[in-house]
Design a binder for these strands. Structure first.
Length: 308
DNA sequence: GCATCACCTAGAGG
DNA sequence: ACCTCTAGGTGAT
């Protein structure tokens, strides 16, 4: 099957799949292989043609369209977020980079695992989880695994999870899986709320403690952006922090910049204030701006540690 | 609220 | 060989 891209729904598969949003895609030769929902997907792009296959079920164009958010009018969005020279250069360097529409549960687990880690290690953790708890599918002689159901992770023993090299995240993940499984947290309901309200729910505290262990402001923003349709969400990780301290100082007061620079990990207050400012600057598609800036920062910015 | 600290892990650099 | 640091942070005190 194939799908024709137009200037309205331009897509760059490589930029999109290497942007650190998802941890489940692998490039083998000229094809990208990944697992989406119940199927293995195999994709390649020739200019405006997107060729795809799937297994075991045949997926239709609509699934591809939805997954890569091809209904977002990218040229209109980039026009709206192109506020300055920095973002402008980022957009030009990564044309066709899109936000991927991820599954709620998979996204939650992925970003719970992503705390204080790096892409390579995160990919390994997720892969271990899928191999241990997900359904196996053999396609073209290769093994693939579906993403495990919440039930499977809620029932998992702690040692099964630590075997997946999750480290201190293992009890967080099990607790979170149990909250989902017993219905005390309903991701679909949270998704229906407005950004602020949804974020409060993800970070929420209940009398007994935190509802979703392992989910802080950064992880919450990623979940909101990648799986809850909150395109205004602007997650701040170390790369975006570096970029802000280098290129967007003028948006903040000196005193605040000093605080931002001096804290190794962004505490709640500093994080929220920074993210709020960036959201108000870029507007309702701030999340797209963040993705372009993130790719730009990772490839262009020198690695400097800001500690004053 | 706000700092400080501990925490799994793999890999790089001294 | 060993340390130390870093990497898409969060939770407890």
């Amino acid at each position: 099957m194939q799908l024709t891209l137009t200037s309205e729904n331009r897509l760059d598969l490589n930029h999109t799949l290497t942007s650190g949003q998802t941890f489940r895609w692998e490039r083998i030769g000229e094809w990208w292989y990944g697992v989406v929902g119940r199927n293995v997907l195999k994709l390649k792009q020739n200019n405006s043609k997107l060729v795809f296959e799937s297994y075991p079920e045949e997926v239709d164009k609509e699934l591809i369209r939805s997954y890569f958010r091809l209904d977002d009018n990218l040229s209109s969005i980039t026009r709206k977020i192109r506020k300055d020279k920095v973002i402008s250069e980022a957009i030009s360097s990564f044309e066709g980079l899109r936000i991927i529409r991820q599954n709620l549960w998979e996204c939650l687990v992925s970003y719970l695992c992503a705390t204080n880690s790096n892409i390579k290690v995160i990919t390994q953790m997720i892969s271990n989880l899928c191999r241990k708890f997900g359904k196996r599918i053999v396609f073209e002689g290769r093994e693939f695994y579906l993403f495990p159901e919440s039930k499977a992770l809620a029932r998992a023993t702690l040692s099964d999870l630590t075997d997946c090299r999750l480290g201190y995240r293992a009890p967080h993940l099990r607790h979170t899986a149990q909250q989902i499984e017993n219905g005390s947290v309903n991701l679909h309901e949270i998704m229906r709320l407005e950004y602020e309200q949804a974020r409060r729910n993800l970070l929420g505290r209940s009398p007994g403690g935190k509802t979703l262990l392992g989910i802080g402001p950064k992880a919450a923003d990623c979940i909101l952006l990648f799986s809850m349709e909150k395109l205004e969400s602007f997650p701040i990780d170390v790369w975006i922090k570096r970029l802000i301290l280098e290129k967007y100082r003028h948006l903040f007061e000196d005193k605040f910049l000093h605080r931002l620079a001096s804290t190794k990990s962004l505490g709640g207050g500093v994080y929220v204030a920074t993210a709020d400012r960036m959201r108000s600057y870029f507007g309702r598609y701030a999340g797209y701006a963040q993705e372009y800036l993130y790719s730009y920062a990772r490839t262009r910015l020198a690695k400097v540690t800001y500690s004053m």
